[in-house]
């Protein structure tokens, strides 16, 4: 251990502010990157679900119009 007490460790020989500022901002930046990277997955899940709903709706509408046209041609 390079320091005699926990107080000395925090003070860093008078440079405590600069050392802990550096480490603090570093971890803050890394944490922000991690959070953004992880939250991307949730966004992708929402996009994927929306796309699936739209496709299902389109398929249903297409099936309905096809039925109509079949009935119409049968009448003719």
């Amino acid at each position: 251990m390079a320091f005699d007490s926990f107080r000395d460790f925090i003070l860093m020989g008078g440079y405590g502010f600069f050392v802990w500022l550096s480490f603090g901002v570093t971890f803050l930046a890394l944490f922000a990157l991690l959070l953004q990277s992880v939250l991307t997955r949730r966004q992708l899940q929402r996009d994927c679900a929306r796309q699936q709903h739209r496709q299902q709706r389109l398929a249903k509408r297409q099936a309905a119009t096809q039925n109509n046209s079949v009935q119409n041609s049968a009448k003719e």
């Binding site: 390079a2 860093m12 020989g13 550096s22 480490f23």
Partner: peptide, 25 residues
Amino acid sequence: GLVWGLAFGPADYQQGDSYRIIYIH
């Protein structure tokens, strides 16, 4: 690496403990 560098590595003879920023810089 960081615990070793911050708490157990020796201080620099010129820069004192400020040099410990090197372990992330």
